[in-house]
Nucleic acid binder design. Sequence first.
DNA 1: CTTTTGCACTCTCAGGTCTAGAGTGCTAAA
DNA 2: TTTAGCACTCTAGACCTGAGAGTGCAAAAG
Lengths: 351, 351
Amino acid sequence: MVASLDSSQLSERSLRLFKVLVEHFIEDGQPVGSRTLAKDSDLNLSPATIRNVMADLEDLGLLQSPHTSAGRVPTAKGYRLFVDNLLRINNLQSAEVEQIARGLAPDGDLSELMKRTSNMLSDITRLAGVVMLPRTSKSILQHIEFISLSANKILVIMIVNDREIQNRIIDTAKSYSASELQQVSNYLNELFAGKELTQVRKSIIDEMQKMKDEVNSLMQTAIEVAQHAFSTNESVREDLLFSGQTNLMDVAELCNVDKLKKLFETFNQKRDILHLLEQAINAKGIQIFIGEESGYDVFDNCSVVTSPYEVDGEILGVLGVIGPTRMQYDRVIPIVDITAKMLGVALNSKN
Amino acid sequence: MVASLDSSQLSERSLRLFKVLVEHFIEDGQPVGSRTLAKDSDLNLSPATIRNVMADLEDLGLLQSPHTSAGRVPTAKGYRLFVDNLLRINNLQSAEVEQIARGLAPDGDLSELMKRTSNMLSDITRLAGVVMLPRTSKSILQHIEFISLSANKILVIMIVNDREIQNRIIDTAKSYSASELQQVSNYLNELFAGKELTQVRKSIIDEMQKMKDEVNSLMQTAIEVAQHAFSTNESVREDLLFSGQTNLMDVAELCNVDKLKKLFETFNQKRDILHLLEQAINAKGIQIFIGEESGYDVFDNCSVVTSPYEVDGEILGVLGVIGPTRMQYDRVIPIVDITAKMLGVALNSKN
DNA sequence: CTTTTGCACTCTCAGGTCTAGAGTGCTAAA
DNA sequence: TTTAGCACTCTAGACCTGAGAGTGCAAAAG
């Protein structure tokens, strides 16, 4: 990717000034000039000296100025250096920790909990929150049940991965009695509970070949119904939850309707966001995409801070926030971090 | 409400000019001046005459001018007159009718169909679409089923009103075997299928009183489990679906971030919109709220066009679109109308 | 060699002036 | 009743201006 910038390439003094500048800019969003910086840093330097340093930092691509007579502003590369090497993470206020804990009380079902988590992230950070439940490649069937709705309609309920409940309505050629359906589900549960969904699907096709001429009608029924149940694609399920998008409307940097529109459309499509989060799922912990780094130009001027969450060492999904590059990383990062950890705990206690 | 304006209070000529003005304004969003109007209307009048007429219309509160030297623009009252008395509804393009029909293909479950309907409304009108499934006061229990998830967790599946599937996870004090649960659901289905939910809830409490000392353990189990199942409030379910909100970002009248933010927050809260739609549910057909008429000032400069949809003469919900007051009513109205009717048909064929 | 001072320069922003254009209302004539 | 004429108002854009902020560079100071 980008040639990673070692902080040792810069003098102590430059780094210090750079850090003060970034903090100042994050604070009030105005380009920072040499005079301000001279006052803010407790190094005793004249503005002129600082100008020289700033010129160097600009050459390195860490700063840029919107125009000649404005101060300087960090670039994406600058934020990267700041986040990687200069940032001191603040301790969270205990009030905030409590708020997170309260928000993650383990009741309601999985998607309900995800929704609350997302809301909480956006409430606390005043940015947009996002929680992903990845479409895991291995979906373990725990239980399947059929309920007759009307002549040719059957409600299929599958419990997958111990947590998710999937409903699906299927139309069948012939109609089945309640007891037939009961037998079918017993049969399928016995055979396939604990197995992986894709494998189940395959087994059913195999089974069908074998049984073709045998006249066990129960089997045939089971296969017909099960085929229906497993055939419909399963990717329709909601696996990405947003909240607090409107918080981004307050952000000065994004305050033009065009930009906002593109951003909101990206949220609606979900596709790009999913791709981004999928990159984050294998990161060990907090992952930060700054501005153009993400590779999606809707996210110019935006940063995405994510963390995977896990139960028993197994990664279940990713959550995080989306906001302007100029965000309070020192606050946002620990919030995302602790939320991910506490969501893991909450999910664990649900089993 | 507003003193309704009878079109007979106005001369034929005034009405004609007014109509042309509104149409012109809807077309290109610029205030219309006397000269333009003189050219556009095929009455052969000089701008001066038209100015007199416009002054009268302004006195009646049908027009207003943004400032002295701009042309005139319809007021909410003006749009009301236009919609009620002057509007000629266009026939829909057959392509559009087809698109609607395709979008309402009756597969997937209820909420899936609602989502598609909402998407379609916003796609076709390029405005924001909304579909409401009202929280009906009478919810008829069709079927209930229990599945054991783990020691003390039970999945409850209720089918209500023939269409909706509700999942709920409950925690129980003691654990139940699969066969116990099977018996419980048989018992409850026998007793309560076809009954109204609130009544079911009441019956269960009564039953509990009666059975207090009897030692039929099945009954007691049933009651304990059922109490849990029916106690949690049922209002959590999603009953309002939006789409295409970002379309509103293109609308020039709403093109400032503050206004948009308020509007989007209103969408998220859903409360005000629900109130508005509840007013529309008892209207015989198309209902139109123009600007301030709605009573909510977030909807200044917005109109809401709604229609209830029904199956077998029973009203199931309301759908519609939200857009600027300056919308193409002649096109939007029949779209909303036909969508409501076709949704009714689609829902009917699902039974 | 590093830092500072001094200075000319650049750019933005807010305010002011001006003009062209659009549209009005009023009066008086047709 | 309609029209023509005209003075008037308001906006929007073009242009200018001065203040302020910040820069870069060269020369002096440490």
